[in-house]
Write a protein that binds this DNA or RNA. Structure first.
Lengths: 149, 149
DNA sequence: TGTAGATTGTTTCCTTGTAAACGAATTTCG
DNA sequence: CGAAATTCGTTTACAAGGAAACAATCTACA
């Protein structure tokens, strides 16, 4: 009944609810990221934004946002912050002057090469509770769930 | 190169990164929740909190927070909001007067019975891109990843 | 016993992210 | 062509959530 410790708590049907499990998994992963990578150059959101710009130079801000599920209002702030730190360059293309094309500065590329190692090492580590095969299964299922290739 | 549409964007190794996929999956699920359940009584966070109190009457605020990965500062606000709406009762137990024991009001139980149907129907629906078997596999893998049962 | 340390919840301040209204540019379609 | 609708990014105002400092209480142990 009145649970005194987390282990005693009864979650009932909730424990089988996909959305609930996804939320917990995401929170846990993020918490561990900040524990283990306190002095990293970039936060996960920043890293992914820089990564995608790096691999898609000249990408438009809106396209980047759609792909990473970042709302426009927030993307504006994110990009400004990256620009202020000299990591990202904004360019207004001639053929559509409402849009913004994003590029990495050369300094940022150097930093990203370092950050890449740390980031993907962490991504390896968080799979630890699962076997190699299970991590692969989870990857496949999540990609299918998301409609990614 | 300079991707014009989301489909053209190259995510590279990122597409296989567990933390990244979890974040996208969670964002997508949450977005769909608010699209489909605009006029629901409770938001997902509120529902889960009320649900766990319902099934563990007298649970302590800190234990609830640990189980649902909600930080104390935030839990204070959440509980106050629920209390202000007459859904939750706070009680200071005699044996530890720092703690707070939470209980559902009778009115809240009625509301939860209605909300339960809607909530778990949604949870069913979001699995749609996957087969029954795959949803079950995903559940199992996520629970193992989280160290649950 | 009594005092140092840990725990519980709260407050304050800050970061992250969203919704809505907006201006500028572009597209659609009469 | 030219007016209406749409798109892109920004601004503004706000909600969700977290970190740190704090008061009250409890625990451990000299």
């Amino acid at each position: 009944m009145a649970a005194r410790s987390p282990a005693d708590v009864d979650l009932g049907r909730l424990e089988g609810a996909l959305g609930f499990l996804l939320r917990l998994a995401q929170l846990r992963t993020q918490a561990r990221f900040f524990e283990e990578n306190a002095e990293a150059d970039f936060k996960p959101g920043e890293f992914t934004v820089l990564w995608v710009i790096w691999h898609n130079p000249g990408i438009r801000q809106s396209v980047l946002g759609q792909k990473l599920m970042i709302k426009r209002a927030h993307m504006t702030k994110l990009v400004r912050s990256l620009e202020d730190r000299g990591l990202v360059t904004r360019r207004i293309p001639e053929d559509d002057r409402r849009a913004v094309e994003l590029t990495l500065s050369t300094g940022a590329e150097t930093q990203m090469k370092r950050a890449e190692t740390r980031f993907f090492a962490f991504e390896e580590r968080i799979g630890a509770p699962l076997s190699k095969t299970e991590v692969e299964q989870l990857n496949v299922l999540l990609r299918k769930f998301l409609g990614l290739g």
